[in-house]
Every structure is written in C-alpha cells, then in structure tokens.
Nucleic acid binder design. Structure first.
Length: 454
DNA sequence: ATTAGGG
DNA sequence: CCCTAAT
C-alpha cells in the first residue's frame, strides 16, 4: 500500500499556533467539508487532526518524494535531516487526501495566516500529541535553538517530539497515516535510514543536535485520548496553555510580586528572563502580546474564507466568529478582543445549565477545552454580560421603540431566553437580588425552563 | 487556584 | 478585558 505523507517545510519566520485553536479550526473545517459533502468520514468529526496532516504554513517549495511502498513514516529526526537539504522534502499522503477533502490550496489558505509568528520559546512544551498538534510548540521563534534545547533536554527520548520536525529552516509536520503501526514504523524508518536509502546531508547547522538516531520513540497518545483519559491531564494541559498564552501567563507566574505599576510589557519581559537564562535563543517581544491576537484574527478570517463557499447552506452563519475589529493602535496591551460567537454563547449556556452559575472552571474544562482563550474568568464575564443583555433586551421591549441601537443585537432570542431561564434557576451567587440583572430573570416568562436543565 | 465584582 | 480582593 502506498504510504506517503507530506512533510511541509516551514519558514523559520513562522511559528506555531496554539494546538487547541488549530484543532478547533481543523475540526470546523472538517465539519464544513462534511456538510458540503466533500468528505464522507463522519465518524470522526470530533477529532481534529488524527488522520490528516495540517501544516502550519507551506513552504515555498514543497517537493514530494515517494519513498516507496515499503517505507513507513519517516522518523522525525530523519525527517529533520532530510529537510535540511533544500528542495528535498518528503512524501505525499496516503491518508485519504490529507485533511479529508481539503485541497492543498485550501490548506494553504487556511494555514497561511495561521501563524504569523511568535515568540517565547517554551521548550518544555515540545509535545506533539500523535496526530500532529503544532501548537504545542507554542510560540517558537528560534526553531533551531528550540530544537537543540529540546534535544539536549532529552525530551526527544521521551518521544515528545513525535511527528514533528524542526529544522533549521523551520518546522515541519507530518501526517501520521499509519499510527497504528506503532513502533514498527519507527523501526522501518531506522532501517531505511541505516540502509541509507537516502543520503542525508545532515547540515546540523544552527543546531548541535546530537540525537541518537537509533533510539526508540514511543508514540504519544492522541490529544483526544489525553483529553478523555483524565481530568488531571486536562488540568495540566490547561496550565500549559495558559503559560503559552503569553500575556496571561506572566500574570500567573508572577502573581503579586511585581511592582504595582509595571506595564504589561515590562511584565512579560520580566517573566521571560528566567527562561532566557536556560534557553539560548529566546526572542522576546514586544510583539508577543499582539501576535497571538493577530494570529487568531487571521485564522478566523481564513476559516471564514474557507467556509465561504459552503456558507450558503450553512446551519448557522452566525457561528462564525465575527470579524474582530481593528487592532488597537494602542498596542499589545490587552488580549485581543475576541467576539463571542453564538455557538460559544450556547456552549456557555449549556455549561451553566449543567454546572450552575459559578462553576466557571468546570465549564471551561468541559465546554471550552478546545478554545485556549476563554478563561474561566472570561466565561464569568460573559455570563455577566449575557445577563445584562438579557436585562437590556427586556428594557428595550418595554420601551418598545424599536430602537436597535443595541450592540448585542446578534444574540438570538432563544439564547437570551435560555439565559434568563438559567438566571432564574441559578441566581447569581451572592447578592442575588440587588443588582440589575435580577429584573431580567424575574420578569421573563419562565415556564419551560425545566426542559433545558437537567 | 478559583470566584466575585468593580472598572 | 483587566485587576484585585476574598476565599
């Protein structure tokens, strides 16, 4: 059987995007493609990246190279070496057309904006859940340094770097079309390597990668597996996410030690220094705070573009992230303002329905595990805003002047209804009755609320 | 570490 | 969203 994969070279100027975000996007794409009839595999619409590959960004020259039927996936390390030789990049994909129906150009579109870049080398996050999740190398800038660091810290032995390849030129990712073959694959690979089926110009240029090629690498469980397997992991990964989310991370790590008036930027720098001491090439960044934002924005746009063609029949067009507003010139101060999509709101509502108001952390874990942004605090804030919106809606109803000067217009009534129902059910903790939101819940028709709440 | 609340 | 106080 033909075993191919595609190895994408990525320019060093780019970096990874958050794993979860990517997964989410891929998932969305997958769904959209399924809905559009472009793919049949409905079975696994819940898994973003298992059987296909996704690249962060396509390199200019992607050369396909068939390694023959008996070849397995290339060993990551091997790949890295291969990739070092310009123009020689790996494989084609046997997997049902990587990404299920996504054409290369689509992939390209998707990913092009996906990674504008980023900073902060978090080398202890060099994990690549089996099915390729680039985001784990959050914010890699100096790839070489990154890789070297990872290698020297023995992480590789741990197989944390699975299907990823970091080259001096960038990062490459590869599909895992034959994950099931587990170790055998690796062996094949090594065999291949030893027989020097390919001469490897190991230009370990920028990096001093000294990795025992004969070492066995274990496969890392899929992201989904990890998620399902335990809450512990979830917790840990969440922590990691937060760390890599830059801005919020710095806050967490340096709780209240800092001087009161530090600007966020200074902050981040402070935060990063420690790492710099141990990691050779860290680039930090003034831009760090914005990049992720831009990042997301572009991605959203890209996704939207991709969805565009099927949008005609789309179930709920509003589910698409509304294009965020222009970036604040003020510069990188705040997290980018990501507008809440209706689906997100629904998820939040579901969460509240299930856990009740106040269990933001739980809700986040269960319903927003795939969206790295949206911290529990965000959820809380959003809920508060929903209640407010609810209240305002009622007000506007009363005035009945048809004034749609409301900024929250896009919220469907059904959503607001559910909010009010829930608000009624789970009165906001503490001062439940004194604030402005109470009126909303109390005066709204709440007859059928039982149905929504289990 | 999480939450509630104020800004 | 951010920040902080209070758990």
């Amino acid at each position: 059987m033909e075993r191919k994969g595609v190895l994408y070279n990525i320019d060093s100027s780019i970096a990874a995007k958050r794993e979860d975000e990517i997964n989410q996007e891929v998932l969305d794409l997958k769904r959209s493609h399924f809905e559009a009839g472009k793919i049949q595999a409905q079975d696994d619409l819940s898994t973003p990246c298992d059987d296909y590959l996704l690249d962060i960004e396509f390199a200019e020259s992607i050369t396909d190279l068939d390694y023959g039927s008996s070849r397995g996936l290339l060993d990551p390390i091997l790949e890295s070496q291969i990739s070092l030789s310009p123009g020689l990049v790996v494989q084609e994909s046997q997997s049902q057309n990587a990404m299920f129906g996504l054409t290369n150009s689509e992939l390209h579109d998707l990913s092009r904006d996906k990674c504008e870049s980023q900073i902060l080398v978090e080398y202890n996050a060099v994990k690549f859940p089996t099915a390729f999740t680039p985001g784990d190398i959050s914010n890699v800038d100096d790839v070489a340094g990154f890789f070297a660091e990872a290698a020297s810290s023995e992480k590789i032995n741990d197989s944390v770097i699975d299907h990823s390849v970091l080259t001096s030129k960038g990062i490459s990712f590869m599909s895992n079309a034959m994950r099931n073959e587990g170790q055998d694959v690796n062996r094949e690979i090594f065999d291949m390597h030893e027989s020097s089926a390919i001469s490897l110009p190991v230009t370990s240029q920028a990096m001093n990668i000294d990795i025992p090629l004969t070492q066995k690498r274990l496969r890392k469980p899929t992201r989904r597996y990890i998620d399902e397997s335990s809450d512990l992991n979830a917790k840990r990964s969440r922590k990691r996410e937060e760390v890599s989310t830059c801005a919020s991370a710095s806050k967490d790590k340096l709780p209240r030690v800092r001087c009161q008036k530090k600007s966020r930027a200074e902050f981040t720098e402070m935060e990063l220094f420690p790492e710099e001491s141990s990691c050779k090439a860290i680039q930090v960044p003034f831009a760090s705070l914005v990049n992720e934002e831009c990042d997301k924005r572009h991605t959203s746009n890209a996704i939207q573009v991709m969805k565009a063609h099927k949008e005609v029949t789309v179930v709920n067009p509003k589910d698409d992230p509304i294009a965020p507003k222009k970036l604040d010139q003020d510069g990188a101060r705040r997290k980018h303002h990501r507008l809440w999509t209706v689906s997100e709101v629904r998820k939040l509502i579901d969460g509240v329905a299930q856990y009740g108001v106040g269990r933001w952390s739980h809700i986040k874990k269960l319903y927003f595990s795939s969206s790295a942004h949206r911290t529990p605090v965000d959820l809380k804030d959003k809920w508060r805003n929903l209640l407010k919106a609810c209240y305002l809606q009622k007000q506007s109803k009363i005035t009945e002047k048809g004034k749609h000067n409301l900024s929250w217009r896009p919220l469907p009534k059904s959503v607001l209804h559910r909010v009010s129902e829930l608000a009624n059910m789970h009165p906001y903790p503490r001062n439940g009755r004194c604030k402005s939101r109470s009126p909303c819940s109390s005066s709204f028709p709440v007859h059928t609320n039982r149905s929504n709440i289990q």
